[in-house]
């Protein structure tokens, strides 16, 4: 008649199912989407993270002297969707499993990732290009590492030179 009585009795026998947290650490699955983690070594300042961020949690500002960019991710605006990490081409942004983000109201605005990313320099002419740290070269520049370190202009010139060389060789051999 009372189907719930059975469950109640079972509850009494089985004992509490309460997690020990907060007296013991809580179980966190490795897939958990916690706060974003930023590796400045891998960032190429492409801005795709900012482009896909619906919450406007990411800002990039060029420094006055043009030597780099200030990268900011404000955790109190981030909605933990992980789109930035999904679209980041170099894996500079990842979602950690850290959810211990509780803080007091006084720290409201300081709860952020702040990092200065210097621009890279063209190996030939020294013009400012996207950052070229070793981590980035290893990740996306391995096809032609030398050319990867050039600015678009020098890169173009180098390609043209190569093409010219290729075209030129047979011409010299057949006078």
């Amino acid at each position: 008649m009372l189907p719930f009585l059975k469950i109640m009795l079972r509850n009494l026998i089985l004992g509490p199912s309460t997690d020990p947290f907060p007296f013991a650490p809580a179980k966190t699955h490795k897939n958990f989407r916690g706060c974003a983690v930023f590796d400045p070594e891998k960032c190429i300042l492409c801005g795709i993270c900012r482009h896909v961020c619906a919450a406007g949690a990411i800002q990039l500002r060029v420094s006055e002297d043009g030597s780099g960019m200030q990268y900011m991710l404000w955790h109190n605006s981030c909605v933990f969707c992980g789109m930035c990490a999904h679209y980041c081409p170099t894996g500079a942004l990842t979602m950690s499993d850290n959810w211990h983000l509780v803080h007091t109201g006084a720290e409201m605005f300081s709860n952020c990732i702040s990092s200065f990313i210097p621009f890279g320099e063209c190996a030939q002419c020294g013009a400012k290009i996207q950052p070229r740290t070793q981590a980035i070269i290893d990740k996306i520049g391995e096809r032609s590492p030398e050319r990867f370190l050039l600015c678009p202009k020098c890169k173009r010139e180098s390609i043209v030179r190569n093409v010219a060389k290729v075209n030129h060789l047979p011409a010299e051999e057949n006078p």
Partner: peptide
């Protein structure tokens, strides 16, 4: 106001 990528997250909310 949001682009097509951002709207995925926005509609989820």
């Amino acid at each position: 106001q949001r682009n097509y990528f951002q709207n995925v997250t926005l509609t989820e909310r």
